[in-house]
């Protein structure tokens, strides 16, 4: 699809301004592109390359390393079922089989109506609440096959659209550093002195 919108360009510059080197902003801006289009479009990567000052190949080189970036459209909801040890011990495999059967698709694919993409996921850091899953990175704990059915029904009925934004939207809150409060990023080669507060005296 598309290059970044004007509103997103403004956010991108704000993010770039926080780092001593612009390339550091690459992953956050890739997330921004995914938030805009639901996936990371080729044009968006070219645009990001311009914004950050690297080649499009470098942008794709970085982006393709990370699993959360999708390069073609996925379902509105990405359903990640954890299958690492604690979840596996507590029945993750059964849950995955149930999901495949219920949705009529294999893990790694999307339902024909474009609603749900089903994926195997690795440890999601909720091991005591096994088996767990994430829908667009929002947790559901101690899932039984019946719970999964309810979840899928609710997603299809649009009951959870307030709680779970479409795929691509990660955090719904952005960090904002007020201009008058921020210290600002300085390229490392421009700093040669120790910070002011290291003068052997207390700061207050």
């Amino acid at each position: 699809m598309s290059r970044l919108t004007d509103a997103n360009i403004a956010i991108a510059y704000e993010i770039i301004g926080r780092y001593p080197r612009p390339k550091s902003a690459l992953i956050p801006i890739l997330h921004l592109a995914q938030e805009q289009d639901g996936y990371v479009a080729e044009d968006a990567m070219k645009h990001i390359a311009e914004l950050v000052g690297v080649t499009p190949a470098e942008v794709f080189g970085t982006a393709s390393f990370y699993e959360m970036f999708k390069f073609e459209p996925v379902g509105k909801y990405l359903l990640n079922i954890c299958g690492t040890m604690s979840c596996a011990l507590m029945g993750a495999e059964e849950l995955m089989h149930h999901a495949e059967k219920r949705l009529g698709i294999k893990a790694g694919s999307t339902t024909p109506d474009g609603l749900i993409t089903l994926e195997h996921a690795e440890c999601q850091a909720a091991c005591t609440e096994a088996p767990c899953l994430q829908v667009n990175y929002r947790y559901r704990f101690k899932m039984t096959p019946a719970d999964l059915d309810t979840l899928i029904d609710d997603l299809a009925a649009g009951k959870l659209s307030d709680e779970i934004p479409s795929h691509g939207v990660l955090a719904t809150v952005r960090q904002r550093i007020p201009a008058e409060r921020g210290v600002g990023a300085v390229a490392p080669e421009k700093v040669n002195e120790s910070p002011e507060w290291l003068d052997g005296k207390s700061a207050l």
Binding site: I27, P28, L30, Y66, I177, R181, G182, V183, W197, L204
Partner: peptide, 27 residues
Amino acid sequence: YAAGYVGKNILGSKFSVDIVLHWGAGA
């Protein structure tokens, strides 16, 4: 930041530091 705990001259002192939130993408 709004309350003066992070950023320039924290709590009115000579100590200034920014905390930048960065997030990964699955690896």
